[in-house]
Design a protein around this nucleic acid. Sequence first.
DNA 1: ATTTTGACTATGT
DNA 2: AACATAGCCAAAA
Length: 105
Amino acid sequence: MTPFTERVIQIIKCIPEGKVMTYGQIAKLAGSPRGARQVVRILHAMSKKYHLPWHRVINAKGEIAIMDDEGSHMQSFLLQAEGVLITDQRYISLADYQYQMEEHA
DNA sequence: ATTTTGACTATGT
DNA sequence: AACATAGCCAAAA
């Protein structure tokens, strides 16, 4: 278990209900700006064992990244059940959400 | 050791 | 806005 992996797990655990983050944001926060794919791998490998809110992680376009229909349907269901903010069919990540708040300030 | 493979991303048309 | 392309990088083959 590398320090990077531990940080990624910690960060994902901290994503509040009703909010989402992108792979890239998480990688950057964990200290590896180009580690988005590692975040994917970690999520895939550890989400069950560490009870991670895997469904709160999306790609940079604000879309669900998971490939198979079963999983993607499950993810959108969970996100909508949490009331994640959506505009233009895109889920709004934590950082962008903050940006929107500033815009309205 | 080398190649392939992704639940990715930034950038340029 | 949609698409192609180049980087990216660890794990699996």
